[in-house]
Design a protein around this nucleic acid. Structure first.
Lengths: 224, 224
DNA sequence: GTCTATAACATGATAGAC
DNA sequence: GTCTATCATGTTATAGAC
């Protein structure tokens, strides 16, 4: 929807702007980078920059979408490597962290809007539904393609929960000042080691009522 | 630390500003209210308002602290009523929601900074440590005063986790458009009904290694 | 119609006079 | 303590070049 039918010239300029903006955000942070800086970086006036991106947040939004696509490709490649549930979940989560590794300062800008129901850039907003659903779908695929596979009904509850867990991991990632965010990596591995072995238990008949209640809760939480 | 030793006159003006700001935030939202609006509401110049509050966020910070104190008082009153674990957890969580009920539009402003490690207003920042610790202490008290009481070691892990759960509930509360946020209330009750009966299991010897691993994980996550 | 530039506006924040 | 500039920055308006 972003780059459908545009003149190549225009597309190239837009691209230069995006790259310059992401570079500046990466180097100096989102708040610290002004739209005037971005325009100057590509030798362009402020007004011209606004012709291509209607707002500073729109640049983040574009990154958000592109980054999700990159994550999907990366995760699916990794998912082809193994059928082990624990490994597959690790592939999706670590794949995400690998994707956003250099963009930690931008992630903050994304989370900034999470608490604002009106904000179009919020990870919970209707406008970002596509990205969100694709991310959840990745967890669903990880569960579905495992051997033995996680049943579809359980996946419908589990996949969104795992996505929420991923958000939490990203939040930790942003705040993590250990070298290469090694702490977050360990935390993720520890959490998955703890949770993955429990998942098969959820298919046991004894777990049925518990699962049913959890599913109902989650449905209420995500209802509009 | 906020209102220690100040001239009564100054203190009153400050108070008028705070009240006016909160009233405007409540009525029209945080972003939609300008500092000029706030100043005008108390018949004061913009510069004068900034003499009392160094930033718009500082007003939110003051609310954050005051609101936490109100919550503590309310929760402790409720905790005196029952020794039942499930009831006590409900008292703390619903007590929080009751405290912030009218201030939903302000909560968004608080969450806005959660993803920014540099921001002094973040719920995870060093500057808000006091508020955070008091909130966690409330959960600790809820667990400790239950009959039978939750052992101290388990509480050290559980209380911060419950606080994280409260943050999630508040996030849901902000986005919740059902009348009186009834959906969030139900969600909280459902989650507590699900979790509270499981807590006694954590004291079982079989659960020991699992708990130990979870505790280690949480310690890593909160380490600086 | 596609692109670019300049000016102006609103708002959070600051400086300096009284 | 209070006020009146003034600034920086996200954003908008508008005029014109190609």
């Amino acid at each position: 929807m972003a780059d459908a039918r545009r003149k190549p010239k225009s597309e190239a300029t837009r691209r230069r702007l995006l790259d310059a903006a992401l570079g500046l955000f990466r180097a100096r942070g989102f708040e610290e980078t002004t739209m005037r800086d971005v325009a100057r970086a590509v030798g362009m006036s402020l007004g011209a920059a606004y012709y291509y991106f209607p707002s500073k947040d729109a640049i983040v939004m574009e990154y958000y979408v592109a980054s999700q696509e990159e994550h999907a490709a990366r995760a699916r490649a990794l998912l082809d490597e193994t059928r082990d549930l624990r490994q597959r979940l690790g592939a999706v989560v670590h794949g995400k962290l690998d994707t956003v590794r250099r963009e930690r300062k931008l992630l903050g800008a994304l989370f900034r809007s999470a608490g604002d129901p009106e904000h179009p850039l919020s990870v919970f907003a209707p406008s970002t539904r596509g990205v969100r659903e694709q991310a959840i779908a990745l967890f669903d695929e990880a569960l579905a393609g495992a051997r033995p596979p996680v049943p579809a009904e359980l996946r419908r509850t589990l996949a969104p929960l795992l996505w929420l867990g991923l958000l939490a991991a990203l939040l930790h990632f942003i705040h993590d000042r250990s070298r290469d965010q090694a702490r977050t990596r360990k935390l993720v591995d520890g959490a998955l080691d703890l949770v993955a072995p429990l998942l098969p238990l959820a298919s046991l008949p004894q777990a049925k009522p518990l699962i049913a209640r959890a599913t109902a809760l989650l449905e209420m939480a995500s209802a509009r």
